[in-house]
């Protein structure tokens, strides 16, 4: 069991190392001649106006919230799905109630216009 996670850990280190090494080697091979114009923020030749870190609209936040609700729902549903074959019809019905409540949540968000992209 634990050796599985050791493998995942090693795999994570290796898969971070490989692209890092490639970028490092390419950095050694590549020329380095920076100048102010070259390093300027690219906006198709226009000069940048103001700060780049602009304020975003609340729309993104709403989508992230709806996503969070559904993400947590799936976390509950996956153990249920694993145990599905061992379950009685009653157990299945309980999960269906769970899903239907969340379908209700989706319909509510829909009717309130939270899913519209403006």
């Amino acid at each position: 069991m634990l050796s599985n996670w050791l493998y995942i850990g090693i795999f994570m280190v290796v898969s971070l190392f490989l692209p890092a090494a490639a970028i490092f080697i390419a950095g050694l091979l590549a020329p380095k001649k920076p100048n102010a114009i070259k390093n300027a923020t690219y906006e198709c030749g226009m000069e940048t106006v103001g700060d780049s870190w602009i304020q975003f609209k609340a729309q993104y936040y709403v989508f992230a919230l709806v996503f969070l609700v559904f993400d947590i729902e799936t976390v509950f549903l996956f153990p249920w799905a694993v145990a599905y074959n061992q379950m009685t019809l009653f157990g299945v019905l309980e999960a269906i109630v769970f899903i239907l409540i969340l379908l209700g949540a989706l319909i509510y968000a829909w009717r309130k216009g939270a899913l519209e992209w403006h």
Binding site: F76, F78, P79, A83, M87
Partner: peptide
């Protein structure tokens, strides 16, 4: 995980 799923319902 199966035990967790069964315990949930």
């Amino acid at each position: 995980i199966q035990m967790l799923g069964l315990a949930l319902v």
